[in-house]
């Protein structure tokens, strides 16, 4: 991680907000209303809201991994990170209150302790991190905690979409993994180039 003082988050431009919020609203609308035609309304909304979250997380994760840094990129990351979280909270709300009737015991019985704990951890950690990013824009961007929550969310999305559920979500999970690998590869290549004599 860079040791030099990081520039603060810039103000979000109108163009950045429009470019992220509008797709977010359209995708969330499609996710929630498209479920109307499904057999299981709640479960479908749980699933489709997570797809929206995954899509925005993929953008945020790649921006986070991509080599270099700039205030402008941080703003894009913050928006993608935030809208991914909002979609995730919709997913979480339908899962917790809709599927599990707001019962912690039911969640634990249904998902078993490892997955249930991981899901709650992701929810609280991600929410706290996004809040910090907005409230303390001068703080460290690529800190250890933020890197860990990115990795945890990546693993959660990858495992749930590619391993647990399959179907159409598998392609989203594979796209996420591919994009992440490309970003990581670019980062490693850049670092190797910087270290070369």
């Amino acid at each position: 991680m860079p040791s030099t003082p990081e520039p603060p988050f810039p103000r979000i431009t109108l163009g950045q907000l429009a470019a992220t919020f509008v797709p977010f609203a359209v995708l969330l609308f499609a996710a929630l209303m498209g479920a109307e035609a499904a057999q299981n309304l709640t479960m479908t909304r749980v699933r489709t809201a997570s797809w929206v979250s995954l899509a925005f997380f993929a953008v945020a994760f790649c921006l986070y991994l991509w080599p270099g840094d700039s205030p402008r990129r941080r703003s894009w990351w913050l928006l993608a990170w935030t809208f991914a979280l909002l979609a995730y909270l919709v997913h979480f709300g339908y899962a917790f209150f809709g599927t599990h009737h707001g019962s912690l015991r039911e969640v634990w019985q249904s998902q078993r302790p490892l997955i249930a704990t991981s899901n709650f951890l992701v929810t609280f950690w991600w929410t706290a991190d996004a809040a910090l990013a907005w409230l303390r824009p001068t703080g460290s961007w690529r800190g250890v905690a933020r890197t860990l929550i990115h990795l945890l969310i990546f693993v959660t999305f990858f495992v749930s979409s590619v391993v647990l559920f399959g179907g159409g979500a598998r392609y989203l999970g594979l796209a996420l993994a591919t994009a992440a690998l490309i970003s990581l590869g670019a980062r490693l290549t850049r670092r190797k180039g910087a270290l070369s004599p």
Binding site: A18, V22, A25, L28
Partner: peptide, 14 residues
């Protein structure tokens, strides 16, 4: 951009 954002807000409100 403002119009698009306003429409998006409306969409979410609906």
């Amino acid at each position: 951009q403002i119009a698009a954002i306003a429409l998006a807000v409306l969409l979410l409100a609906v």
